[in-house]
Design a protein around this nucleic acid. Structure first.
Lengths: 184, 184
DNA sequence: CGCCGAGTTGAACTGAATCAAGAAACGTGG
DNA sequence: CCACGTTTCTTGATTCAGTTCAACTCGGCG
């Protein structure tokens, strides 16, 4: 599973892949588990084998705003915190019982130093995320609540039906009430 | 200049740096020059030595929406188009007479293959951009027009006074009229 | 059975868009 | 150096999408 995903990006040899994967740990986590609390340093990069997670942050008034959803086959972390050892603005939360593979910064650094291909892998993953973030930005800027929801359905069809409405609403930058009205 | 910038990211040796920079070409461009037209494939990655550029796209109704500003010391390109050889959604335009250094995909690929450090450089540049895009996303989602403008002043203080108001407005996802009212 | 979180519905309010017109700044050629 | 056209910016009046606040429904679960 994680094998297949990595191979889609880079043609690793079997040995390389085995070595790389030996640095990951399998973690089974439950719905509502919090992997990272805001203000702490995010120590791990996670690969979501099966399940869903989200990142969110708290506004001054205490409302939580979903920043991103991480579905099957995606890497999940608080990027600047993890890569730059700074406190995370974001919380990472698991939304349904999930199977993850995690790797620490130290171990990833070993792999990044050892394999040019891993460096490239991370670059490609970043590029993919970057493209998606810009998509979302475009979807939100100058678009109505309905158009935003359509974007969500198009971009994350599998996720849209597994998640509490409130999370989707804050992800799209609208209120839960508005989203509820749109759906009918 | 470009030397110093690259050295901030990675401790290249003199030989490495000379070799790398020999693959770049210096380009002097003028205000209103368009480097990439939407629909075409972006062939080059640019480094802005001095000046300002922006990326924008056209909405159905023909209005142009600024997506990003590229000031001194930043890399500028249409990322997915350049790295994945796909047609660009975005236009790249120069906003004041500028000095750029450009490199083609082919030459960059050579450098990426030859130097593990260049691969890392690009990864770090991506990480920086990713962080900034998420910042912008947070600034726009659930924030008033005034708060967005404050974000702009904080994030891009040098740029805010060199650019037509309309570009800033569309960048922030508000209308020019509203921005004009906010400023006083 | 009654509680509790999640979702829906309603009515009043508001920030920002839209439409329209005028003022200021810019640059280009005579 | 001034006149003219173009672009950029400001200001005003109106309108509307979406927020806010509050009450109510529904389904699951102890």
């Amino acid at each position: 599973m994680i094998r297949d995903y990595l191979l889609e990006f880079i043609p690793f040899s079997d040995e390389e892949l085995n070595d790389i994967l030996s640095h990951f740990e399998k973690e089974c986590v439950q719905k509502n588990d919090v992997l990272i609390v805001g203000g702490q340093i995010c120590k791990k990069l996670y690969f979501v084998e099966q399940g869903i997670g989200r990142s969110y942050y708290l506004k001054q008034d205490g409302k939580d705003i979903t920043q991103w959803f991480f579905g099957d086959g995606k890497f999940m972390t608080s990027a600047d915190s993890f890569f730059q050892h700074t406190p995370s603005i974001y919380y990472l939360e698991i939304l349904e019982d999930s199977v993850l593979h995690s790797i620490s910064k130290e171990k990833l650094d070993i792999l990044l130093g050892k394999y040019h291909k891993v460096e490239k892998l991370i670059r490609l993953v970043f590029l993919e995320i970057l493209t998606q973030v810009f998509h979302k930005l475009n979807a939100i800027q100058f678009h109505t609540a309905k158009e935003r929801y359509d974007y969500m359905l198009a971009e994350l069809p599998d996720i849209s039906y597994r998640i509490p409405l409130g999370h989707i609403a804050s992800y799209l930058g609208i209120t839960q009430e508005t989203l509820s009205r749109i759906r009918k």
